[in-house]
Write a protein that binds this DNA or RNA. Structure first.
Lengths: 334, 334
DNA sequence: CTGAAAGCGCTTACAG
DNA sequence: CTGAAAGCGCTTACAG
């Protein structure tokens, strides 16, 4: 059994109230001598206040919950890392769950998190598998932020996907491309939809139309990107450029094009999305769009744990992207 | 304020003890009618037992802590995902922390985790930045498992790195290579050390010696792999094959070789480690060693949460690897 | 089968 | 500046 506050009180010869006050380290006035005694006792007994008891009395678990589709997809842990960084700086810890895009798993994760009385909850991903029981959230005083998903009910932090898609479109148009294939993420991904919308806006502004057979689903995986690219290239009028909604799919596209004996960027230009670390080390180096996943996390936590403790009205933040031009789009001849 | 057990008791017209018993869902005998009333009240009030209170009385937080160097490196979240899967199946949740290989951060993470009274603790990574206060662990009854790090004090789950390295060595020898460069992970990485040891054993068995200038540090990153490869190739007698201790470094190596106008595998053979999803989609497709990070996590949790609740003596598990032969090693002509 | 009561380890008015 | 006591929301012997 670890030492409790009573043990420390006995050891120091003071009341538990006093121990509590020095252990918590607030600015409650304590006699210098008393404080020293208590500190010594804490040290001697290796006392570490029980977080559950603290949470219970203070009505604050100091826990923030994170729910993401799948923590084994690098994008989510990176956001979570951002969340962790600001959370720990504020004395919170993160409890994370994967839903696998399954509503059932999502529901039980949320339940477990609410049972643990998380002070804040971040829901990552544009899917709709997570449904939040708003009555309970209010009762528990749990602040919520959605990352990458649109809603008015809660605060949101989102990537400027449409703007980025538009920028990619304009870039490719400027390079002379008029037929641009789009490798989409999985069905229902709002991020992918928005990127496509941006691309189409750019094309429309240039008077170029975009057909539905110029879009193929790639499921956000290398394999999906590979297959989608083959489908795109086997159309009656294959595109001269491909925009993949993620770098992982772009890597699949690169393999597919290579296997079809097509050179990138000479025969087909390629642009990805995310700017994962290895994008720079592909050959040709991948032109892509950089988004700071870490930043999404820090911004989100900033919204939740702003220190006031007062629930505010939902806020909506947007995180900028930055296009990184390397070799695969053909803008830079190698 | 969310409904408490008293609210439910009042609503159902029974004692809190009774509510506790039906809410906990054990096999404690309860009258059918009473049970129905309580269940109805729980439903009506949307009662969800407070996890902190439960934890406090039951002396079990139902929390497992995970400490890893950096959750933004995909390898760790994947292990963590394995941990999560078995943890949630057993009614636990995971609290995760990144240390950035900084002893200070590690210390405060461990402290925070112990304060939360985690029932179990998994320490991931071969580094030594994490030091565990054994006295406290015993007092708290916290079970510990180290993933990827050798120790007798706690249970461990480790990858058969040396065996894998040896297998790679033999494979490369069989292909005729006599000079094999090794791209190592960061300094002090036991995984990297073990893989190198295995490689050297294979070489030694074949009567081939391996010099220290045939090893270059690559820090487990693409950039590190790139630079290390250049250094290796600039030696007086450049290797005919390169074994990188991670796929990410292998990708850097691939770029470096390409930039040096060297063809893989014709001029230089290349083997990675990890078998990340995109290894198959590189061109040439990467020959590598597959390790199930997810499995490391499930095995580790299996050791901790075995349901007996009784602390056992440390157990030591080893997880097999599997060499995946693709194009980059030259075994399969493309 | 059901309930009253003590207790888990803290915090925090309240009184002095 | 210090302490006694109530209370946070549960569980669990113990008694009936």
């Amino acid at each position: 059994m670890p030492a409790t506050i009573r043990d420390v009180a006995a050891e120091a010869g003071v009341s538990v109230a006093t121990v509590s006050r020095v252990a918590s380290g607030g600015d409650y006035p304590i006699g210098a001598e008393t404080k020293a005694k208590v500190l010594a006792a804490i040290e001697r007994l290796n006392y570490r206040p029980n977080g559950m008891a603290k949470g219970l009395t203070q009505r604050n678990s100091r826990l923030v919950g994170v729910v993401a589709p799948d923590m084994s997809n690098p994008y989510y842990p990176e956001i979570t890392r951002g969340i962790e960084d600001v959370a720990t700086a504020r004395g919170y810890q993160v409890l994370s769950c994967s839903t696998d895009r399954d509503p059932g798993r999502a529901r039980s994760s949320i339940d477990a998190l609410l049972a643990k009385r998380v002070a804040a909850l971040a829901v990552i991903g544009g899917g709709d598998e997570v449904v939040l029981p708003d009555g309970d959230l209010e009762a528990y005083g749990t602040e919520v932020v959605m990352i990458g998903r649109a809603t008015r009910r809660f605060s949101t932090v989102r990537v400027e996907n449409a703007e980025a898609g538009q920028e990619v479109g304009r870039h490719l148009l400027a390079l002379g491309h008029r037929s641009i294939g789009f490798v989409a993420g999985h069905r229902g991904s709002s991020a992918s939809d928005e990127r496509l919308r941006g691309l189409r806006r750019a094309l429309k502004d240039a008077g170029v139309e975009h057909r539905s057979d110029q879009v193929a689903n790639g499921d956000y995986t290398e394999a999906g990107g590979y297959d989608a690219t083959r489908r795109l290239m086997h159309a009656s009028a294959p595109p001269s450029a491909i925009f993949a909604a993620s770098d992982r799919m772009a890597i699949g596209a690169l393999a597919a094009l290579r296997d079809m004996q097509l050179r990138v960027p000479d025969d087909v230009a390629l642009v990805g999305f995310d700017d994962i670390p290895m994008a720079e080390y592909l050959r040709p180096a991948l032109t892509t769009v950089s988004v700071s996943a870490h930043r999404l996390g820090t911004e989100a936590m900033g919204l939740l744990l702003d220190g006031t403790g007062r629930p505010r009205r939902p806020q909506h933040l947007r995180v900028r992207t930055r296009m990184v031009i390397r070799e695969s789009c053909g803008a830079r001849r190698t």
